[in-house]
Nucleic acid binder design. Structure first.
Ligand SMILES: [Mn+2]
Ligand SMILES: [Mn+2]
Ligand SMILES: [Zn+2]
Ligand SMILES: [Zn+2]
Lengths: 120, 120
DNA sequence: AATATAAATAGTAATAATTCCTATTACTGT
DNA sequence: ACAGTAATAGGAATTATTACTATTTATATT
């Protein structure tokens, strides 16, 4: 993979926030440094970085969000303030259970819990 | 809520399959009975039925799927054949854990597990 | 340093998924 | 039967994402 300052910037933006940003948020942030950057470039590079395991993509209802934290973990989403927080459920146990009960070879477990966070 | 034959048909379609269909699949099925039905009508009524607790909506990556089974349960998605199967994890425990550890009031827990099903 | 190459980008068009708008329709009470 | 009104239907609009292509840029080779 060839170097590109666009991809480097996009990676830095994702790695510089805990907010689990959307592509559009990243695009707007990137524009401040590279004013003519395009959405196509943002999406192309986010997917590339995800495929390389540099960042992680996940879906919040029907929109993609990007996460610098590539270690398996889960999320709490507050319905009041929209904040998405990292949590850790031990999914290894679920993985085993699913194999024992359903003979299903799980390679990805996503748990998204929505509700009301401790700020309210 | 006023009666409409469109909504009745949409409800019947969702309740008549275990395939966790998308809006588009439901739309195509509905067209066979009401040829001029529109996507807007399909979405509006699916959301209405979901809000009334008649059916349940969930998201498979970035697209909505609809489920006649309104009792809390989770899903296995096969990456080879695309089949989505119902499973039961005890989310009550997770709910408690999240409250104890993070003081987060969970009102919805969605677990989607992807991998390879026992047909392969 | 100049050149060749192949990959990446910008800009735009296309597609897919969903929501919004407004004329029409159907339930309710007279 | 009729009027009033709120819900509905269909299509237009919006949003999110991907595809296309001429141009630019990084890197390897001379
Ligand atoms: Mn995270
Ligand atoms: Mn189900
Ligand atoms: Zn909150
Ligand atoms: Zn399968």
């Amino acid at each position: 993979m060839r170097f590109s300052k666009q991809r480097e910037l996009i990676q830095h933006i994702v790695q510089g926030t805990n907010s689990h940003p959307t592509a559009y948020w990243i695009f707007n942030k990137a524009k401040k440094k590279i004013s003519n950057i395009s959405m196509g470039t943002v999406y192309r590079n986010l997917n590339k970085l995800n495929n390389d395991g540099v960042i992680k993509i996940f879906y919040d209802n029907n929109i993609a969000r990007y996460d610098w934290n590539t270690v398996a973990h889960d999320h709490l989403k507050c319905n009041k303030c929209g904040k998405i927080t990292d949590i850790n459920m031990h999914t290894k146990e679920l993985q085993k259970k699913v194999w024992n009960q359903y003979k299903f070879e799980a390679d990805n477990i996503e748990i998204t819990i929505s509700g009301i966070c401790n700020n309210h």
